[in-house]
Computed example of a mutant assay.
Amino acid sequence: MGRWEPNALERLQLAALELFTERGFDQVTVNEIAERAGLTKRTFFRYFGDKREVLFGDQEGFVGLFAEGMATVPPEAGALEVAAAAIERVAAVFPIERQPFADARRAVVAANAELLERELLKRAKLTSAMVDALRERGEPEPVAKVAADLAALAFSTAYERWAEPGNREEFADLAREALAELVAAAAGLSSPAAAPGR
């Protein structure tokens, strides 16, 4: 069974999630994942460096998608428009048929402190990459940080909603909605009574 198998990536992901859900992430080996998928350990390592990558994938490639989206926006666009374009680009990675995988993944990550920490680190790297890209476009530091934080939070919020059991909404729609809500919430933080020096 050392030859290439069709749909090997999906089979490995589904097998891993089934096992992680049944027994917990720490109790599952790469051999068991490959065996459940009807593949070899060698095939597993063609797709993933370790079993965590089944859940987190190619982080550098993911950050690259955000950068691609930001690069499509004209130079005169504002920081939030740039951040929105980044989220739109990444939305293509989340077709609705992947939603059941996301729901199971979310539960596995939530049940493991190490995986939760890695999830937070992934978000921090994403935010940092967006800040750097916005600064390169000439945005001042505070503007770059706020826009990147809002975009990262909108992305996380959209992912949580998209991964909900029974969700049928497209990721891009949920991301636009989340970003609009966050921008409105941020605007509502300021009022004449709350302004500094009053």
Rank of each mutant, 00 (worst) to 15 (best):
109 V>Q: 01
110 A>H: 07
110 A>D: 13
111 A>M: 02
111 A>N: 06
111 A>S: 11
111 A>R: 10
112 N>W: 02
112 N>H: 14
113 A>I: 06
113 A>W: 10
113 A>Q: 12
114 E>W: 02
114 E>L: 08
115 L>G: 00
115 L>T: 04
115 L>M: 07
116 L>F: 00
116 L>A: 11
116 L>M: 13
117 E>F: 09
117 E>P: 02
117 E>D: 15
117 E>H: 12
118 R>W: 11
120 L>Y: 02
120 L>S: 10
120 L>C: 08
120 L>H: 12
121 L>F: 07
121 L>P: 02
122 K>Q: 11
122 K>N: 13
123 R>Y: 02
124 A>C: 05
124 A>M: 10
124 A>W: 00
124 A>H: 04
124 A>T: 05
124 A>F: 03
125 K>V: 01
126 L>V: 13
126 L>Q: 13
126 L>N: 03
128 S>E: 12
128 S>Y: 07
129 A>N: 04
130 M>P: 04
130 M>H: 05
131 V>A: 00
132 D>V: 08
132 D>I: 07
132 D>R: 13
133 A>E: 09
133 A>S: 07
136 E>T: 03
137 R>E: 05
137 R>P: 04
137 R>H: 09
138 G>L: 05
138 G>Y: 09
138 G>C: 08
138 G>F: 08
138 G>A: 06
139 E>C: 07
140 P>I: 04
140 P>W: 03
140 P>Q: 01
140 P>T: 01
141 E>R: 12
142 P>D: 15
142 P>N: 15
142 P>V: 14
143 V>R: 09
143 V>C: 05
145 K>I: 07
145 K>H: 10
145 K>P: 01
145 K>Y: 07
146 V>K: 01
146 V>T: 11
146 V>G: 08
146 V>M: 10
147 A>H: 10
147 A>N: 11
147 A>I: 12
147 A>R: 09
148 A>E: 02
148 A>S: 14
149 D>N: 14
149 D>I: 13
150 L>R: 05
151 A>M: 03
152 A>L: 04
154 A>P: 10
154 A>D: 09
154 A>C: 13
154 A>F: 10
156 S>L: 10
156 S>R: 08
156 S>E: 13
157 T>W: 02
157 T>Y: 06
158 A>Q: 01
158 A>G: 00
159 Y>E: 11
159 Y>F: 15
